[in-house]
Design a protein around this nucleic acid. Structure first.
Lengths: 333, 333
DNA sequence: GCAGGTCATCGAAGCGCTTCGACGCGAAGG
DNA sequence: CCTTCGCGTCGAAGCGCTTCGATGACCTGC
């Protein structure tokens, strides 16, 4: 059973090959009757256009690259959510997704772009000084970044508005009447890498607290139970008046609650806790955490849309910030 | 700056196009001097073969599909680890990876296979009665499954030996002298879906306990702290003599420790706990968990190897079971 | 009634690569 | 010395598709 080609369809429908092509692409007007005949033949024969041939002739592979970071300190569930929404959205635009890991580096990007394997690139977790950025600027293939490098000039970047997310937490706690609050952030290594989002959250948090005229304090936070326990204890010892805690570290959120329990602080009676994390983690915790959602799905969807727009040659904004959303649950009052 | 083609390389090196092709593919002998000249030209011009053209002419896309499940109850970190190792290993074989989600179903598989977008398929999380299995049997493109359907006849399947993993936990606890043990498994929905691995773990666990002549009990386990707390309490009430607990649910492992702490049971003094989970989760817990590793990386690597062997036309075993490995940490004695 | 315009369709020229058969040349064998 | 055989290389024929220009057929309007 040889594979069905466009020529088979053409013969079966009694038309020229080019007519079949035009029916399928819609790039020229075709009479309703012919169109229907062709479509029927396609169905009957079970025709699927050969991707390679199509790519070769049209110079469009209908594939985009998704470059995921796969390092320590990354938040895996969020990453998966993001990847899923990218794939799903791309399919809506009739594109497929080639999965790459960041460890192929700039060479890898160059390879898939130069070989015309993909039409465009989506990069996650771009760093402040990312060696791939100069390449992206040069590349003919359009790209969209998740996260912001130092200089987004000439690029297209999408991200959650982390500064706003941090501010939202501070606002919420301030509105509840807390006068002394703190933020526990990502592991130290994340700050050292300069991924940006962690700093921006802290900055937004501190700035909002200042605006409210309340005491705020922000520090990195490791992810093992013992380190978290120690960190929380230290924080409570140093700042006896502390009554509001923001956790921007999903792996840590559960452990922070455990530590507070052990240290004899009730949540939310003694300490209000707000997490910046996906909803499922917040809901699974006990008490359920008031949280600011990291809208991974929105980011993925938006990133693909922007990339598709660029593929169509449309102009798109250099920077797109997605608004965070606060959901109040049981851990704050 | 037009993109560099093989013809440009040929001209630059002063040879025929076919010679360049043979140098690059190694399918015919080429003299060392010519080879070097061609290779130099390739480097100088920055030539990258056009993927579409190559696929069209050679009928090999050098791309494999990776189909990930994206449903509730899945373990995301393991999934990511697995995906990473698939991508990395595929690259070693000079292949790229097309990411698909299971929600495209059998049609999606058919599409990518029929369009020659991919040369082979890797499916994760195959269910006992998976509607995609009949299609896979029919497809010309080779495939490898992670997990086992009811009838693996004619397929190629890889998985961790979950029965052995369950048994290993029971053996370990029995060897430590525990006479009454229990297993907390995946959420109920996973069993209902019939993914297989969860049942096999339980079966292996129960069977091993029977062999040792000790009391064992195995039940599903939800993932919220409150439900876990309730489940652990119930278990301890029902079975006062219980001194060994196996947790086969990574999202739950931390919560189980928390619940035991609240219920006043010390680990490992009162209750020994063994988890079946990735090492990082086990190490991050407090006390660090004795655990059986789910070797996601090995599974991914092995799956790609098998797929590559099939692409080469080699015969491969229908079923490959990876041996679990027990790491003793602080939570059992 | 015929120039001019539309609309639907066709044929053919590539797209950049692999691969097959052919060919020339020097070495080996009789 | 002539035949035979590899080895290294070349040329050309596709692979299956898109797209451009061309071609009729048919309609419109003066």
């Amino acid at each position: 059973m040889r594979t069905v080609t466009i020529a088979d369809v053409a013969k079966h429908a009694g038309v020229a090959v080019s007519t079949v092509s035009y029916v399928l692409s819609g790039k020229r007007a075709i009479s309703a009757t012919t169109r229907q005949r062709v479509l029927d033949s396609v169905r009957v024969l079970g025709y699927h256009p050969n991707a390679g041939a199509r790519a070769l002739a049209s110079k469009r592979a209908k594939v985009i690259a998704l470059v995921l970071p796969l390092r320590a300190g990354m938040n895996l569930p969020v990453l998966m959510q993001f990847a899923t929404s990218v794939v799903t959205t791309a399919r809506q635009y009739d594109h497929d997704v080639l999965l790459m890991t960041a460890d192929e580096g700039a060479d890898g990007l160059h390879r898939v772009a130069a070989s015309a394997l993909v039409d465009g690139l989506l990069l996650m977790d771009v760093e402040i000084h990312d060696p791939r950025v100069p390449l992206l600027r040069k590349l003919a293939e359009p790209s969209v970044l998740i996260g912001f490098p130092a200089d987004p000039e000439g690029l297209t970047c999408v991200d959650l508005d982390f500064a706003h997310a941090g501010a939202l937490c501070a606002d919420h706690l301030a509105d509840l009447g807390h006068r002394e609050i703190a933020l526990l952030g990502a592991p130290r290594v994340v700050y050292e890498r300069g991924t940006g989002f962690a700093e921006r959250t802290m900055a937004g948090f501190v700035e909002a607290a200042r605006r409210h005229g309340i005491e705020a304090d922000a520090r990195p936070c490791e992810e093992s139970f013992d380190e978290i326990h120690a960190a929380v204890k230290l924080l409570l010892d140093e700042r006896p008046g502390l009554s509001g805690l923001v956790v921007h570290n999903e792996a840590a959120a559960g452990h922070v609650l455990g530590a507070l329990r052990i240290l004899g602080r009730r949540v939310p009676e003694d300490v209000s806790v707000v997490a910046i994390c996906p909803d499922d983690i917040a809901e699974r915790a006990s008490p359920a955490l008031t949280s600011v959602l990291i809208p991974a799905e929105d980011v993925g969807r938006q990133a693909v849309r922007l990339l598709m727009a660029k593929l169509e040659g449309q102009a798109v904004p250099e920077s797109t910030l997605l608004e965070p959303r606060l959901t109040i649950r049981e851990s704050s009052r």
